[in-house]
Nucleic acid binder design. Sequence first.
DNA 1: AACCGGATTTATAACGTTTTAATTCACTCA
DNA 2: TGAGTGAATTAAAACGTTATAAATCCGGTT
Lengths: 351, 351
Amino acid sequence: MTRETTDLPVAPSGTKPTLRSLAEATGFSVATVSRALADDQRIAAKTRAVVAEAAALAGYVPDRAARRLRTGRTQVVTLLLNTEHEFLGFTHEFLSGITETLRGTGYSVNVVPDDVGDDRLSPVRNILRNHLADGILFTRTEAFDPRVRLLMEHGFPFVSHGRTEFTAPHPFVDFDNEAFARQAVQRLVAKGRTRLSLILPEDRYTFTQHLRYGFLSEARNAGVEHEIVEGVTLDSPAASIAEALRASRAGDAPPDGYVCVGEVTALVTLSAMADSGAILGRDADVFAKRASPIFDNIRPRIDTVFEDLRETGRKMAEMLLRRMQGEDPAELSHMLVPDFERLHHSDETQG
Amino acid sequence: MTRETTDLPVAPSGTKPTLRSLAEATGFSVATVSRALADDQRIAAKTRAVVAEAAALAGYVPDRAARRLRTGRTQVVTLLLNTEHEFLGFTHEFLSGITETLRGTGYSVNVVPDDVGDDRLSPVRNILRNHLADGILFTRTEAFDPRVRLLMEHGFPFVSHGRTEFTAPHPFVDFDNEAFARQAVQRLVAKGRTRLSLILPEDRYTFTQHLRYGFLSEARNAGVEHEIVEGVTLDSPAASIAEALRASRAGDAPPDGYVCVGEVTALVTLSAMADSGAILGRDADVFAKRASPIFDNIRPRIDTVFEDLRETGRKMAEMLLRRMQGEDPAELSHMLVPDFERLHHSDETQG
DNA sequence: AACCGGATTTATAACGTTTTAATTCACTCA
DNA sequence: TGAGTGAATTAAAACGTTATAAATCCGGTT
């Protein structure tokens, strides 16, 4: 009971500390030690203190496999990550936010590829069937996303990046893309632009509808001409997008205002303009959404709004933690609003 | 022994399939079923077939926690991921390559933040002590990287992105940065440039030395002036880099050739040139390394060499798998060479 | 008829944890 | 005194797997 071995600072001599070794060291039973470490109130306060000290001394950490086997809880959160397309920096920022929030919670982050071409349900089924995680995060949510349906049926904790159109509420974090689109139109119109153009993501994604709605209704309000580029999406190869843009510019009255939802699109738009002799600010303007600070270093400069994906990751992880603790899904949603005050994220570094 | 239940197509009625349920279904013991599934040659061929069929029918998948508890093997690979800086698209491509190779192997990928400011050793210690993974991958390797030393001491499987200067061999995948730097200098000199400039990553990283050596020795060979920009590194804030570049351009004989190791640096360089009235191709040229296809869509175009980080991820995962199977570390290394033939990755999409 | 040996199979322990259902113990109360 | 009470502790089972050591079977010797 009284410590006679004050020599080991952190590491136990040869074998790794376990409940049993702590039990032997303290003289209590394994069951008591387990409860004491869980801070079970039925265990005498003094006992809890003694056990805690012994555990700290030995550097005890509960064995994840054993705990998982016994409780069924994995202490793992799985991120379904699209490995095909990305907005520049999306993955990095998003994943950084997630790990940042989860650090120190005992949960670890597991990354599983989610390729839209494939069956998006199969990774989820796999996790569900074999209980490979306690919670799931995913992106590129569809209006009636089958993953959301399945997970809700199973009552399995998850947070989606993006809303759905299901009636039952579920946890999500989203960016207000409609507001972005409206604001983009307003800005371009304010600059005197009258023929707006937009390239959308694939129809399947919910946020595509938000963008479309915001763009169309605001353009109608303003009474300006507008087009949604056909035959090409945000995820099309840059070459195809460039082709479509050039075709569009070859018409009699080419667009004079571009709303760009992704960075690649924005850059391609700038290139297409340059290639066809159009000059930014004179012949057309561009308004883009960006996830990385890259546009601060592009000349000519364009107007952008920042979507903070690190914060998105943080929020999603936080909601998932709360959901896994049993909080009501209806309470767990968060909207990121475009920061219109800080357009352009102006750098102050240039002359 | 003879299956009387042919009704269940894939899912077992209520409870999940386990060795015990398979044992009951086939009439063999749990031990035999376990061995049969492991394709142990001591088990009769007919028995193995019967068990395999039953397992397939029931949709049996071994429980990871139980197996891990028993064997000590986690079936987890941990990626130490820097969450601060990134070359554009690095994380996405790299991680995609890793998950791509690991898919279907039974290993899952676990992401742990590795922040250079912190103690880079502590995540490794944590993994080692609690056996949280069977193997480790990491980036931003230092010349005498303490993580490499520790892992080698423990004989723990890992693959580093980048070499070290330890004498004992260890698995790594690296890009030939010296060759890149040499080629960059040669190209710029071939264009008639005589005052070259380079911004390096932090000194601690091994690849910094490779870049420096390649740059310096090739510039001396060619007999051209050259400078390594002081007081600023690849990871400095874009604003600081821009500041340093502008200061450099303000001198009497500003650089006329820039070697850019990262995309952000390249963009900042272009901005700094634009801001100071210098024109690409007339007053200076830029040669950059890129990890994303972004430069195809930048105007004016610059010469680039592609570092394929998806392939890097694939290779690292592959080496780790082989290392975990006990292969000799000395055999497990791979160098990616700059693809000089495909400079610029020309797009053919523009007029 | 007893025995051997190789080929199969099996009972059992163990990995480290949590939890159910006792058990112990010191008191209090009638 | 003897039972009742509540607080504190514990023995033991269980989670699903693998590995050790032992058991069984069977055809072929001696």
